[in-house]
Design a protein around this nucleic acid. Structure first.
Lengths: 224, 224
DNA sequence: TCTTATCAAATTGTTCAACAATCCTTACAT
DNA sequence: ATGTAAGGATTGTTGAACAATTTGATAAGA
């Protein structure tokens, strides 16, 4: 009678009484699988399998699907099921278009927010340390956090949300590539960008960032 | 989930065979009521009433709630129900911050997209006509469409979606005000902006737009 | 009178099982 | 090879049931 609890396999036990809903708990597990590559883009998420595995009702699972669908990680096709989103080259180009807009606007003014600059320094140090220890996936997440902080310079809650969503989408592409080749070239650029921001040289930072994002976009599109 | 709604279902009668899901159909009806003022900000949407009125199940209605919640039109309070969103002054300020970023970036380059310019001319004409006939609510929708087209100059599908969502949020505030006082001052500014865009004078257009949005924000915040 | 405690009613949160609608595969016919 | 017609599998929707929480009313006590 000792049936293994599927949730234990992921180190996530389901509390008896949770403040957050069961749907969010299920969504968190699926989100992790998607963003960490356990579920490849394009694969289908069958309701039967997942209700059995996660031990939640179909309704709850479908609510979790809905949550992840709004984060653009899953794609819902009417009467055909739910699939892990597949980013097209056009999607990648669009995402980088938005990034140029958001991060460019954030950087242009050259405003020196002490808290943000401190956060940037911390993230850069974290990335350097991870790189020195060959933990390239960690370098990748540090890189994403760097740009999230950049975006936050806009001082807008909504922009922060948009940016987080964009970066989550990008993860769909990232984990199909070699994290070293993907992130190594950008470590020095992050440092340089930080010094420009520190000096309040907004326009220079914007120009560097634009070149930065163009290059990153080219690297990603080269894999298609 | 995130499926484009053909929004064919505005007659409030459910077609025998629906192409979109029932939840999206219900969401479309509620969305219209909220954005057109039939449901005032702060009012509660009781499940019992709406399941009876729309003749959908509770589960389906709650999925519609979820959709509109993600669009920030409805607000969900745990165990207390769903309410039409009430925008705080901070929300309004945040929305205008994002608008300055999106519309500013769209206009700065001074790129002359013939299709977009034609669309802008058409919308301006529509607004003028509606104003001449004292149909001020129609002037309001034309004004919103004007700025939606402006945003589309960025050439990004995601930006278009963001902008549409921002303007839907703004409607929550708009329809609590006198549409004449709200939109009349901005008719000539729209025309002027159009001529600047026509001449490819990007920076001038950006400056005008920034002043424009600052003024609009002040007008809105003055009502709080 | 005011505060606090308790209870009952109403509403939301969650799950389940059944049925309807749709898609997809297979088999068959042309 | 192409098109068509079952049927089996999967998703869409519903109604009901029960749990948990809020709300409002009532009663008890200071």
């Amino acid at each position: 009678m000792s049936e293994p609890d599927p949730s234990d396999a992921y180190g996530e036990t389901r509390p008896f009484r949770v403040r957050s809903s069961t749907a969010e708990w299920a969504a968190a597990i699926l989100r992790q699988r998607v963003t960490e590559g356990g579920l490849a883009p394009g694969s289908r998420l069958a309701e039967d399998e997942l209700t059995a595995e996660l031990e939640v009702s179909r309704n709850t699972l479908r609510e979790a699907f809905s949550l992840l669908g709004h984060e653009r990680l899953l794609e819902h096709r009417l009467n055909r099921g739910v699939y892990v989103r597949v980013l097209s080259p056009a999607d990648v180009a669009d995402i980088y278009r938005v990034r140029r807009m958001i991060e460019g606007a954030a950087v242009r003014r050259g405003e020196r927010d002490p808290a943000a600059l401190a956060a940037l320094r911390e993230v850069v140090a974290e990335a350097d340390k991870a790189a020195a220890e060959d933990r390239w996936p960690d370098v990748g997440t540090a890189d994403l956090r760097f740009h999230l902080v950049i975006a936050s310079l806009n001082g807008s809650e909504r922009v922060n949300t948009m940016m987080a969503q964009l970066l989550a989408e990008l993860r769909l592409v990232f984990h199909t590539m070699d994290p070293h080749a993907l992130h190594a070239p950008f470590l020095p650029l992050n440092r340089e960008l930080l010094t420009l921001l520190d000096a309040g040289r907004g326009p220079d930072a914007e120009a560097l960032l634009a070149a930065y994002l163009d290059q990153a976009e080219r690297v990603l599109l080269a894999t298609y």
